[in-house]
Design a protein around this nucleic acid. Structure first.
Lengths: 203, 203
DNA sequence: TAGATTGTTAATCGATTAACAATC
DNA sequence: TAGATTGTTAATCGATTAACAATC
C-alpha cells in the first residue's frame, strides 16, 4: 500500500524527469533528483523502490526508462476523455488549457444550465439537460466540476449515476461519493488561505 | 513551530466553522468537527491547542469565537490587494472569481505582454511594461502569476525586485525566490496526475 | 452535583533518514 | 579493479492517537 505522501510526490518526480528527458539528459542519480526537489536521496530511492527497482547500482537511473516507468505508474500512458460541467469563468478557462492535451487528457464537451453559445474554444456546449444522454452515448473517463458550490453535489450525483468514476472538483465544497468513485480537489480558497497564513507569519 | 500538516488543515477548519456560523450553530465539540472532516477529535484539539485554548471544558467551542480566532490565525481579518500577471485563460477567469472578495482579497489590476482590451470584468488591463511603475505607485500584497511557464520565473523576479512579498503561482513550474518571499502553488497538472494515479489503482 | 468535553501528557504509529551490503 | 550508486534494512524522528486530570 502506497502512502499519500508518496503519491503526492510522484507527479513532482515525473515533471522533473520529463524535463530532464526533454533536455537530452540520459542518466540521473537519486542525489541529483533529491537536490532539485529539495528532499533526500534516501527518500527518492525509497519512493521509487515502492514500484520496483528502476535504477542500476553504480550507475543511477536511465532518464528515459524512468520517465516511462513513472508515466505507467501515474496512468499517463493512455488517453482520457473528459467533460466539463459549468461554463463559468473556470469552466471556460479549462476548455482553453492546452497543457491537458500534451498529457493525453481531452476535453470532449462542456455542459451548462444556461448555454450562452454553442461552442467555446472549439468545444461544444450542451445544455445540462442533455448530460445524461451524452454520457450514455459517449465514453467519459473524467468529469470536471466547475459549477457554483451549491450545485456541485447534485451534479456529482448525476455524473456518478451515469457511470462516471473519476471527478476533478474545482467547486469549493467537499463532495460525497460512494466507494469506487474518485474525487480529486483543486481548492483555490484553501491554497489562498495558506498563502495568507504564511504571509502573516513571514519572519 | 507549526507543522506543515497542521497549516494545511487550518483552512478546512475555517471553512467548516464558517459554514456552522452561517447556519446559526452556536457551539461545537472537537468530536463533531472531527466527524465532518474525517479526522480524530484528538487531532482537532491538538491542532487548535497550538494556537491557544479556544474551547471550554465540558462545553466545547463557541462557533463564532472559534471562527474569529481562525480568521485571525489565517490572516483573514484584513484585506489584501492583488494583481494578476497574465491575461490568458486562467488570468481572465480569476478576474471574474467572486469568492475572493468575500474573503477580503481584491484584484486591482491585470498585466499582459499583449493587452487585447482595456479592461476585463471591470479590472483594468495594463501592459507588462507598466508593471514596475504600477507597483511603485500602488500597494500590492499578493501577485498572482498566471503566465506561461517560460515567463513565470522572470515575472517573479520582476515582482520581487519591485517589493512584492507574496506570490500565488498558477504556472506549472517551481519558482525560486529569496528568503522572505512566499510562494504558494496551484498545480493543476499535479492534481490531475494524482487523479489519474488513483483512477488507475481504483480497487 | 454529575456529565461532558477540553487541554495536555504519554504511547503508538508511520514516515523519513541513515547506513551499508550488493553490484554495476 | 576501484568507484559509484542502487535497493533495502535498521534507526530516528515527528505526527497522530489514546488517555485522563482539570474544570466548566
Amino acid at each position: 500500500m502506497i502512502s499519500e505522501a508518496v503519491i503526492k510526490r510522484l507527479p513532482r518526480y515525473y515533471r522533473h524527469i520529463k524535463h530532464l528527458a526533454d533536455s537530452g539528459v540520459d542518466k540521473v542519480s537519486s542525489n541529483k533528483i533529491a537536490t532539485v526537489l529539495n528532499i533526500t536521496a534516501s527518500q527518492v530511492r525509497q519512493d521509487l523502490c515502492n514500484f520496483g527497482g528502476f535504477g542500476q547500482q553504480g550507475y543511477g537511473y536511465d532518464v528515459v526508462k524512468l520517465k516511462n516507468e513513472l508515466a505507467v505508474i501515474l496512468g499517463l500512458d493512455k488517453e482520457y476523455d473528459m467533460i466539463i460541467v459549468g461554463a463559468g469563468n473556470i469552466g471556460r478557462a479549462l476548455t482553453g488549457y492546452k497543457g491537458f492535451r500534451d498529457d493525453g487528457f481531452y476535453v470532449k464537451a462542456l455542459f451548462d444550465i444556461d448555454p450562452r453559445c454553442s461552442s467555446i474554444n472549439g468545444i461544444k456546449v450542451y445544455n445540462m439537460g442533455d448530460m445524461k444522454q451524452y454520457l450514455a452515448d459517449n465514453h467519459t473517463d473524467i468529469a470536471i466540476i466547475a459549477t457554483q458550490k451549491d450545485s456541485a453535489q447534485s451534479v456529482a450525483d448525476e455524473l456518478i449515476s451515469a457511470g462516471v468514476k473519476s471527478i476533478w472538483n474545482f467547486a469549493p465544497v467537499e463532495i460525497e461519493v460512494p466507494d469506487g468513485v474518485i474525487v480529486e480537489n483543486i481548492s483555490m480558497s484553501e491554497s489562498l488561505y495558506v498563502l495568507s497564513y504564511r504571509a502573516k507569519n513571514n519572519n
